[in-house]
Amino acid sequence: MQRIFLDTNIVIDFLGERDGFYEPAAKIMTLADHKKIKIFTSPSSISNTYYLLSKYENTKIAMEKIRKFKVLCAISLMDDEVVEKAINSDFKDFEDAMQYFSAIASHCDLIVTRNEKDFKNAMIPVMNGESYLETIKK
């Protein structure tokens, strides 16, 4: 089964039902719900998503969304080794480095993000939601 890492922006697109971005994220979540793929995200993605959702929604609703999302999503590793690799990497954005090395440590096959350019030196494929869904159709 393919292991897909969702970057924070994709998690926010889905749980925040963001106009113009929700549909691809929802389709990816449906694939996970049907056990066609296994999705992962990092602990920091979960906390950052909750923080942003709680700014615009009731905190209980935000937490319920996180709770339901967690049923479909595994949490990737984010340990001392991930942090060390991120610190010593050539990523321009430290948060992206943390996400990348967390995905690698969790043996993910690819990363889905809306910021592909931020992962230009990645050793696994990085694509946006629409591009990923196109590869599934083929």
Score class of each variant (00 low, 15 high):
I104F: 00
F91N: 11
I87H: 10
S102E: 08
D90K: 14
A97I: 03
A105Q: 12
D93H: 07
F101E: 07
D79E: 09
K92P: 01
Y100K: 00
F91P: 11
D96R: 03
A86C: 09
L110W: 01
E81N: 12
D80H: 09
A105M: 02
F94M: 11
D109P: 00
V83P: 03
D109S: 06
I87P: 08
A97S: 13
V83G: 02
A86D: 10
F94S: 03
E95N: 07
D79H: 06
A103I: 04
D96C: 04
N88T: 10
A105K: 15
K92E: 15
V83I: 15
E84S: 14
D79A: 09
D93E: 11
S102D: 09
I104L: 11
S102C: 07
F94Q: 05
Q99P: 06
C108Y: 00
D93A: 09
K92H: 13
K85N: 15
L110V: 07
A105L: 01
A105D: 10
D80I: 10
S106Q: 05
V82K: 04
A86S: 15
F101K: 05
V82C: 08
V82A: 03
F94E: 01
F91A: 10
F94T: 05
D96F: 00
V82L: 03
E81I: 12
S102P: 09
E81S: 12
E95W: 04
D93Q: 10
K92Q: 14
F101Y: 15
E84K: 14
S106A: 02
D96T: 06
I104S: 02
D93V: 09
D93K: 08
V82Q: 07
A105T: 01
S89Q: 10
I87G: 08
F101M: 04
F101G: 05
Q99W: 04
S89G: 11
D96K: 02
D79Q: 06
A103C: 03
L110E: 12
K85D: 13
F101H: 12
L110Y: 06
S102Y: 08
Y100N: 05
F91Q: 12
D80A: 13
